[in-house]
Design a protein around this nucleic acid. Structure first.
Length: 109
DNA sequence: TCCGTGACGCGAT
DNA sequence: CATCGCGCCACGG
């Protein structure tokens, strides 16, 4: 059977997708925060993989820790443009996280 | 099977 | 505050 899915990699992947889709207009979240919210702490790199594989996601709302734009070159410029279009402001080269970082609802505690 | 790669994160320097 | 190094995770050559 699913010997290739250790503990449910696919499901975690689905949760990552939902977390990204749940990001409200005008807000952002770091790769690591998305992974953690999806119940997969430490899997920031998987978030990147999802962003590159699943089309139609609000990719511009996902940034690096501290609000850093990690996308290089023109793509990074595109991301900053889109965020500004949504009303997101920057502090230097990074997003003002104190004001725009999205707070994921914690699944029960 | 080993090794390199990537829109990462964080502590140390 | 800029860099560096190392850990993390899955994938592809």
């Amino acid at each position: 059977m699913n010997r290739s899915s250790p503990s449910g990699t696919l499901e975690k992947r689905e949760r990552i997708i939902r977390c990204i889709r749940s990001l409200p207009h005008g807000t952002v979240a770091s790769y690591g925060a998305v992974a953690a919210a999806a119940g997969w702490p430490g899997a920031a790199r998987q978030v990147v993989r999802v962003l590159n594989q699943v089309p139609g996601l609000p990719w511009h709302r996902v940034v690096g820790a501290g609000g850093a734009i990690k996308l290089p070159g023109e793509n990074g410029a595109e991301q900053r443009f889109r965020l500004r279009m949504e009303g997101v402001t920057f502090r230097g080269a990074r997003v003002d996280m104190a004001k725009y970082e999205h707070r994921f609802l914690r699944a029960r505690r």
